[in-house]
Design a protein around this nucleic acid. Structure first.
Lengths: 349, 349
DNA sequence: TTGAAAGCGCTAACAT
DNA sequence: ATGTTAGCGCTTTCAA
């Protein structure tokens, strides 16, 4: 079984505290002893027992990532995965392990957030989902536990107390509108999802506001408040072909996946993209390159937001290491602007 | 800060061992006392300190998932994500937390496998990647640590010692061949990747063997040993258009993503799918429904393999809980057969 | 049925 | 610069 500092102490003929100090690079130990002990530790493939260590340092060097990834939500999942990769990468670099979990246990209904915190399994929490319950938030606040929300802004009632790093959705919607108008499009079929998350609402607001400020009135009937999914997009187009009569462009503020569904629908109805109808998506899903035509879209600054959020969380966590009785964290809030990715699915009128 | 069993003991006026016993549902404690103590614990929102517990039970109730998900490998990532979701779900149901990590630290180069095991942060390991190093494997064996490989079969030299749950790739390749031949296709351009993993080789073997047993010779020049990616597929088609002259079908044994690249290439060259050329992919990526035409493909039994592998690992782990000095695990090996998903991208000749 | 005491592997305050 | 000691929160043997 595992080698302990006691074993090393015996071999080196010193006390275990000296071993502990040496391996933790304390300056309170002679260089010579330190090196000798390190050498022995290395020869024996010694590693600290994480539990024993956590038990009295009160730190686990583990971060929890609350991450939905429901099986059904393949489309969102694809977006999340690129976030997760970046995140893990940074945590790893900084020496943290990552426990990934759903917001709550799907079988017992129990909150995983509370569980991880109260059992002292993690030192901080990165939350990548929109629907965290008030009870969990209260628990977090009560314990002054380091938390950063990524991508999804938390519910409105805790928004001002919480730290989050997200995307400027208003700006994204505005960018899409600006681009389409610059190409001469005015009769635009626009898709949003009013249910899932406010992010879509914000995109729509940006979209509407741009046209408003340009003095152009948007036909409300052409703003479809549907559901963000490829399937919905496809079906809607097929079932509402007559709506397409005067439409010159489709603006899918939800996702590139949905745009792919729309594209398929248009194609089945005999419309060519972009010759007959222009199409713009949202997200900049790497797949957009391989649709026919390649999809023009709004790029979500994934790497940036993951990186900013992760680093900020680490800061919070380290502050707390240094000062256990830390007063409240100053909430950190950051919105990163998305950008236009121009490919082949839109044409100038 | 956190409530401990000592606090509860004081309140209840009993010894902390009685509290421990009660909360662990020992039969050595009177029902009445037990209930009284449980009540107090609940009122106080008590949760065990995981580190303290692990320190003497030698179990962490945490499983490690070795999971590549390189940022660059978006395409593989999409496949992995559905695995990960299923896996987490089952672990959660069984009361395990999940630490997700790369095979090795990308910055220090250090092995995360060794690290997690030797620091005693996990009780078992699920490995979803192909390239585990011999040193790690030796370490696992030496410690008789519970490990199951998922999807990727481990390297040939440890194959017979290791437990794995994977897909019958030979059968998958065979299924594709059988289907295409049943539609009358014989001049088939076939893509495989000989570099990444043997799984592609196995698929090719199944494919070749089917034609061989049907007495049909496969033109070796039409078997492209390239790289599994949408980009490669696209470029290959564009740059090798003359190869397509007599070809009636393209069989992409690598992935649906790559098939999408091929589809785009064909489309740009003016070929219609399936009217001019049939196309079959591999994986059954949910996206295949939204390509134009919907992609016929070979379904990877994702849910099945995740579920089998995960449950088997849990069995191993629990066996070890019960018998610390367990002799070696009998390796568990399981291959699940993929199935054909017929959509719209192939036609009868 | 309950309590007392030792110990899991480590850190850190205190002593030397 | 190093050793001694107590203790982190829990489980478990032994005793009562």
């Amino acid at each position: 079984m595992g080698v302990t500092i006691n074993d090393i102490a015996k071999i080196a003929g010193v006390n275990k505290s000296t071993v502990s100090r040496s391996l933790n690079d304390s300056h309170l130990v002679a260089e010579e002893t330190k090196n000798r002990i390190k050498k022995i530790a290395e020869d024996l493939n010694f590693e600290f027992n994480a539990s024993a260590r956590s038990l009295n340092t009160k730190r686990t060097d583990t971060i929890g990532v609350i991450y939905p990834g429901e099986i059904e939500q393949f489309e969102e999942g694809v977006y999340h995965i690129s976030l997760l990769s970046d995140i893990r990468s940074i945590f790893e670099k900084e020496g943290f392990d990552t426990i990934v979990t759903f917001p709550k246990n799907r079988f017992t209904g129990e909150s995983n957030i509370k569980k991880l915190i109260s059992r002292k399994k993690i030192d901080g929490l990165l939350i990548i989902c929109s629907d965290i319950v008030q009870e969990d938030w209260d628990y977090i606040k009560k314990n002054n536990f380091p938390v950063v929300f990524l991508h999804y802004k938390p519910n409105i009632d805790i928004l001002n107390q919480a730290s989050f790093v997200s995307t400027d959705n208003f700006y994204g919607g505005r960018t899409a509108a600006e681009y389409l108008l610059s190409l001469g499009h005015k009769n635009i079929l626009c898709f949003v999802d009013m249910v899932k998350n406010i992010e879509y609402v914000e995109r729509l607001e940006g979209y509407m506001s741009y046209f408003r400020s340009a003095g152009i009135s948007v036909d409300e009937n052409l703003v479809i408040k549907g559901e963000s999914s490829a399937e919905y997009g496809y079906k809607f187009i097929i079932e509402n072909r007559k709506m397409l009569k005067d439409v010159t462009a489709v603006c899918v503020l939800c996702s590139d996946f949905m745009a792919m569904g729309v594209l398929k629908g248009l194609s089945e109805l005999g419309y060519r993209v972009p010759e007959d109808i222009s199409l713009i998506g949202y997200d900049d899903n790497p797949l957009g390159i391989y649709t026919i035509p390649a999809l023009t879209t709004i790029h979500q600054p994934r790497e940036e937001i993951s990186s900013i959020a992760t680093k900020q969380l680490i800061k919070f966590v380290r502050n707390k290491y240094e000062d256990e009785e830390l007063e409240e964290f100053e909430p950190f809030k950051k919105l990163v602007k998305p950008t236009l990715v121009e490919r082949k699915s839109c044409r100038r009128l």
